[in-house]
Design a binder for these strands. Structure first.
Lengths: 333, 333
DNA sequence: CGATATGTTGAGAGCGCTTTCAAGGAGGAG
DNA sequence: CTCCTCCTTGAAAGCGCTCTCAACATATCG
């Protein structure tokens, strides 16, 4: 089994350069290409990535950084779907992927990534308001695509959705369907999306001439927080007929608390979520939510990075993906 | 900012070789080491991985292959915990990791991995009985550590548990606690663990002088299969007072079906699982199961691979991790 | 004091590939 | 028929690092 370009060159009676051209689609006469191709196939040749990388300066490998608490990474379907999307897009372009999860501190992770010195670029989730990892990456020599973005990231490449507008939309829906006492169980306080969704919620209320005082309850995007906040609301005897949860996980928690208290959805309380993760439609009743196509975001992030790598000079890319209000039974009138 | 070894060499007034020695811990006089170290730090030098790889033949990157249907990868906490364990161990050794999930066919994935031509080794889940991916990897030039193993893998390096013995143990427990009509909801038919656990189940019954005819019901390790099989059992009016589920997921499904039918655990039916995933202790009632420390398996797999890479000549490593019967309320007498 | 062992260093040969550069050949224009 | 252009190809220079080998300096020993 031939191993190097030189071996192949000898086998096919041409020079190493020509074989390289055949492999990389350089200008070669049809006859030569044929001949080399034959040898190439019969010999099951695999180019040495390291050598190629060294010579060309590109590795065909990108980093994916999802620095969240380890258990969360997978317990939270959001990250799973996102990763799946990225993986999918990347592998269809034959790009390799290295993964960094949150099992080290951000500083260590950053060092680790930069030290890898082999990545063509990175995709990093950037939802946390103050994130040294994201800042460090952006400050590095490496092309970076953010999933989500902070105000400070206006000039970076990112893929995101308009959280504020989407939250307004779903809150409007709640108002329109006649709900009077609407509460919002927010996302993580330190997250951009959590903050923006809360802002959207408030705006919608304000636009309808209602007050949002005390209507935003702090959650953290987990099932538990949805459960706890709802439970407390019930225990405190607060009057409410609609809950807009920061994400689907929290909505699921709210479902549990409501069920436990014997409160019917949607008859007594309407519940809305955000994300439209796979399980949203399978809840009982099916959950009204905002579809943001998490998998698509992953796809898009990968695509964006690859395009950025191909044409760096065209400057940063900003992609705002559309969202869609998905009305299901949980908010029926 | 100095970029190459040569730059550093010039800056510190020694030869490139010496700088390399300092970096890699070769024999250097203390004085020289100090001097070079200073330059090294002040210059924030990062070695070029590709060059290093090319020259040394090692990349410091290992592949992790978990070729399972995409949604399963994360929906199934087993894989999540396994991956977390691997990740953790790897990152503590500053080893990079590339991940392959099941979003391509096994053939494509194999090609992809082999084509990467840069990995020092791979860790691959090998629970499927007939797995071209595993076979292809084993047949390749690359060091491989399997998580789980088939009969045919006796001479490979692997990390596994004794499924058969563990299943016998938990079945014994069911027998000992006075259960008379015990059924087993098996794992995937095409999986080694599924088959071995069923064998263990049968052996335990046989040892106790009971028949296992018709006592093994085919499941597939999912929540749904646990639910469906149990539901059918109830619907068919079959008499049973204990269920040994192939894994915790299936047990969770069984819980649902039993709850729905108003059957009490453990008073009327005892339920046992396998894996002791995080949620097992949080079910109501807490689930009796076999703890196999999935995270530890991941850790061990990573450690095993790294040790294999360090000392290839010492031959294949086989690690059989201990399991532990964790008795909780779901099988109380 | 010369000979041998020990420790430290630099020169240089690759690792396998990409990519210029220039040479050679074929074909078209004048 | 000659000149120029375009196409195809090979030679060779690196990419940045590791590692062997030999040289030199110093230390040890007889």
């Amino acid at each position: 089994m031939a191993r190097t370009l030189d071996d192949l060159a000898e086998l096919s009676g041409v020079s190493r350069a020509t074989v390289s051209r055949v492999i990389n689609g350089g200008p070669v006469s049809e006859a030569t290409r044929q001949r080399v191709m034959e040898v190439l196939e019969s010999t099951n040749y695999r180019p040495n990535l390291a050598a190629r990388n060294l010579a060309s300066g590109k590795s065909g490998v990108v980093g994916v950084v999802m620095h969240v608490a380890a258990p969360l990474t997978f317990a939270d379907a959001y990250f799973a779907e996102l990763l799946t999307g990225i993986c999918d897009s990347l592998s269809s372009q034959a790009a390799g992927m290295m993964l960094w999860l949150g099992n080290r501190t951000k500083e260590e992770t950053l060092d680790n990534i930069l030290g890898m010195g082999m990545l063509d670029g990175v995709i990093v989730t950037a939802d946390t308001i103050d994130d040294p990892l994201v800042d460090g990456l952006r400050a590095s020599y490496m092309p970076v695509v953010l999933v989500g973005h902070r105000r400070a990231d206006r000039d970076a490449s990112y893929v995101d959705i308009d959280h504020e507008a989407a939250a307004m939309g779903i809150t409007d829906h709640l108002i329109q369907t006649g709900r009077r006492h609407i509460f919002h169980i927010s996302g993580r306080l330190n997250s951009v999306s959590g903050r923006d969704r809360a802002i959207g919620f408030r705006s919608a209320l304000k636009k309808a001439g209602r007050s949002s005082d005390g209507a935003v309850l702090t959650g953290d995007y987990t099932d538990e927080s949805g459960y706890e906040v709802t439970r407390k609301l019930i225990a405190d005897g607060v009057e409410f007929d609609a809950l807009f949860c920061g994400n689907d996980n929290a909505a699921r928690g709210a479902y549990r608390a409501l069920a436990q208290a014997g409160i019917s959805i949607p008859d007594e309380v309407a519940v809305a979520g955000f994300d439209d993760l796979d399980f949203a439609s399978e809840l009982d009743p099916p959950l009204t939510t905002v579809r943001q196509g998490v998998g698509d975001i992953g796809h898009e992030a990968a695509r964006t990075l690859l395009s950025l790598l191909d044409n760096p000079e065209t400057g940063p890319r900003r992609v705002l993906l559309p969202t869609e209000l998905v009305v299901r039974r949980s908010t029926a009138e």
